[in-house]
């Protein structure tokens, strides 16, 4: 059985772009371990040869006619941005 360690929690938090406090790491280590121990019960089922379900309702590709139609527009799209300039979203410096 798999055991969640604080190192795993740090690694997953990094993938998820979450900074965690030390007590959050402690709590998540035990909670994730408990929950993942519970989901181990799925291994009681033999699923060899079973097709996975990604969507419950089988749908073919949803095509539409390739027609231009009005969209939101830059002003409305930027309206909720914490920071914007010159018609763009502004983010902190990416490259030093």
């Amino acid at each position: 059985m798999m055991k969640i360690t604080p190192e795993t929690v740090h690694h997953v938090a990094d993938l998820a772009r979450l900074s965690l406090g030390e007590d959050e790491v402690v709590n998540l280590t035990s909670e994730m371990d408990l929950i993942l121990a519970y989901v181990e019960k799925l291994n009681q089922l033999d699923t060899a040869g079973i097709t996975p379900t990604a969507h419950a309702v089988p749908l073919e590709n949803a095509f539409r006619d390739d027609l231009a139609s009005p969209s939101l527009g830059a002003e409305k799209a930027l309206h909720n941005a914490p920071d914007s300039a010159e018609g763009c979203f502004r983010v902190p410096k990416v490259i030093e």
Binding site: V12, L18, L42, L45, T53
Partner: peptide, 24 residues
């Protein structure tokens, strides 16, 4: 965190894919 873990490299088949098969 749980979802990121279930999709992460090395665990995808054991958790996410397994769950999708059980969903079937």
């Amino acid at each position: 965190m749980l979802g990121t873990f279930a999709l992460s490299s090395g665990y995808y088949d054991a958790y996410y894919l397994k769950a999708q098969k059980v969903r079937t």
